[in-house]
Structure formats: structure tokens, C-alpha cells
């Protein structure tokens, strides 16, 4: 698997992502500066977390207009794999590669804590190393992670099986208390229709080492590494 991490100005979790990818894939991903335009060497394009353009205007809005987005769109259109985490998820929705939008957290405060995610589908290239219904822990760290889409879009996502992760209790119940940012239907991560573009708010890349408190996030990177093993 050849992975590349897109670096927009203000992105700040690119190194965390590189550590997680290297841990699973055994080789370093390529850091791709946002002014580059050629992604044809990559199997997996990752947009990491951070505050691209300072989160000014709206989170991800300015990055979504950046020239490299044309290349990312092309990669996705060719059936390539794209992973967007946190700000990366926001950028994917702003660019229209995933539906919906991420609003301010319902409590209007930044949330830095571990959350629990229930795996809704274990038959995607990103989740095969999890079991369906399995719950795993992931740190979250965001001010704008409140997933919103209109009811028709939400119904479509559910109908097509594109909700991949939901906020849940450690025992897997989908409750309002487990949904700290207020996301519609507890949605933490969704995929494109072909299941190859995945966006999620929490940070599985920050929990891939027992020393940091666990390896709950590692199956996600093991899954995509296995799926794209050349």
C-alpha cells in the first residue's frame, strides 16, 4: 500500500497519522504538500486532523477549495481510497465528497476525551479487522464534530449502509449520553456509496500503542493495509 498524507496549512495531526500508518503498513507514508497536484502514485489518500486555515470561516471550508482537491476528487472518482479524520472529515464534507456537515458541538465547548465507537459495518476495506457491533475506544478532540444532514440524507445513508461508526456506550448502546457532540443519530463516521471514502471525527490514529493506553484504533489501519496490500 502506498499512502499519502495531505498537508494543508494548519493541519497538525499529520505526524500522528504517519505513526499509525507506519505501524500497520511497515513503511512511511508520503507527506503531500497541498500545492501538489499529482496523486497518481497513491493507493490511499489521507486527510488528517488539525485546523486547516485556522478553522476560519468554517472548519475545512478553505482547504476544500484548494487546488489539490481536484486531484483528490479524481482519485476518489477512479475508485481510490480516501480517509478523512476530524478536520479531514470536515474537509471531505465541505468538498462534497461526503454528504452532510459538521456543526459546532452542541455544548459549544471543545471536547477532548475518549469516546466509544460501535462498528456498524465490518465488511468495508477500512473495518474488516473489527467485528460488526464491536465497540472500540478512540480519543476525540474537536470543537465542531456535530454531524448534521437533513432527514432524507440521513435515511439514504442508513438505507445504503453508509454509516460506519456510531458513538456508543462502552457496552455498545447508542444513547444520547454517549453522543457528546450532538451528532445526528450518533453518527461518528460515514462512507461514500462505494465505501472507499471514509470520514470520521475521532482519532483512531492516537490509540495504536499500548503505551499510549491501547491499540483500539489499530485494526482500522490494519484493515486498510491488508485491503490495499499490493
Amino acid at each position: 500500500m502506498k499512502a499519502g498524507i495531505i498537508v494543508f496549512p494548519g493541519i497538525n495531526r499529520e505526524r500522528d497519522m504517519a505513526i499509525a500508518l507506519e505501524r500497520s503498513a511497515g513503511k512511511k507514508p508520503r507527506m503531500v504538500w497541498h500545492r501538489e497536484t499529482d496523486l497518481s502514485d497513491l493507493d490511499l489518500v489521507v486527510i488528517p486532523g488539525g485546523f486547516s486555515y485556522g478553522d476560519y470561516l468554517r472548519c475545512g471550508a478553505m482547504a476544500a477549495q484548494s487546488p489539490i482537491m481536484a486531484a483528490i476528487r479524481g482519485h476518489a472518482a477512479r475508485g481510490g481510497h480516501v480517509l478523512g479524520v476530524c478536520n479531514g472529515f470536515q474537509i471531505l464534507t465541505e468538498a462534497g465528497l461526503l454528504p452532510g456537515a459538521l456543526l459546532r458541538n452542541q455544548g459549544l465547548r471543545f471536547l477532548a476525551m475518549d469516546c466509544h465507537l460501535r462498528v456498524e459495518r465490518a465488511d468495508t476495506d477500512f473495518t474488516r479487522h473489527y467485528q460488526r457491533g464491536e465497540v472500540f475506544r478512540a480519543p476525540m478532540a474537536h470543537g465542531d464534530g456535530n454531524y448534521f444532514a437533513d432527514d432524507a440524507t440521513l435515511d439514504l445513508l442508513e438505507g445504503e449502509g453508509r454509516v460506519i461508526f456510531r458513538y456508543a456506550t462502552p457496552s455498545g448502546e447508542v444513547t444520547p449520553a454517549a453522543n457528546r457532540n450532538g451528532s445526528a443519530r450518533n453518527i461518528a463516521g460515514i462512507a461514500s456509496a462505494n465505501l472507499r471514502v471514509l470520514g470520521l471525527m475521532p482519532h483512531p490514529e492516537d490509540l495504536v500503542d499500548p503505551l499510549m493506553g491501547g491499540e483500539d484504533g489499530k485494526p482500522l489501519f490494519d484493515s486498510i493495509t491488508a485491503a490495499l496490500a499490493a
Binding site: L57, A61, Q65, T93, G100, F148, A149
Partner: peptide, 9 residues
């Protein structure tokens, strides 16, 4: 339309 507003929301 292009940048200042996100017409989804």
C-alpha cells in the same frame, strides 16, 4: 455559494 456559505447548512 462557492466559499463563504456552506449551503448544506
Amino acid at each position: 455559494r462557492k466559499l463563504l456559505a456552506n449551503t448544506v447548512i
